[in-house]
């Protein structure tokens, strides 16, 4: 049990970030802040993956003479992909925010939803 605290500390911090990110996503009015929360939320999962890839006294997984102990490259590959996917989502989300600002003049979700709903005339 004495090992548990340093051994699991990484996970706990990742979980803390996960919760912070989730709160920011669930309770932000500002759409840009929501995207920042989403980034934090995703990075918590990245941290969890990279943590499980670490091997005690291991080295970066680049083969070289005289090194025989490496950290696990597979989580690195997966997270490399996930980071790129994350920024792709951010880009699309922010493009939507730009269009929403142009259509509604604000990026505050509550402000948009408080407006009376008008049914726009759809002209075929």
């Amino acid at each position: 049990m004495t090992d548990a605290i340093p051994g699991l500390f990484n996970y706990w911090v990742a979980i803390g970030l996960f919760v912070c990110g989730l709160v920011m996503i669930l309770d932000s009015r500002n759409m840009i802040r929501k995207m920042v929360g989403l980034n934090m939320f995703q990075s918590a999962v990245f941290l969890l993956f990279i943590t499980m890839g670490k091997v005690e006294n291991g080295h970066a997984p680049i083969l070289a003479d005289g090194i025989s102990r490496f950290s696990n490259p597979l989580p690195h590959v997966l997270i490399l992909t996930a980071i790129v996917v994350g920024v792709a989502t951010t880009a699309v989300g922010l493009a939507l925010v730009v269009r929403i600002r142009r259509a509604y003049g604000t990026v505050d979700e509550d402000e948009i939803f408080d407006r009376p709903e008008v049914e726009p005339e759809i002209v075929p």
């Binding site: 943590t51 890839g53 670490k54 680049i62 950290s71 989580p75």
Partner: peptide, 11 residues
Amino acid sequence: IMDAVDVAFTE
């Protein structure tokens, strides 16, 4: 620190 140099570079 966790030896994920490629990931760090990408991040």
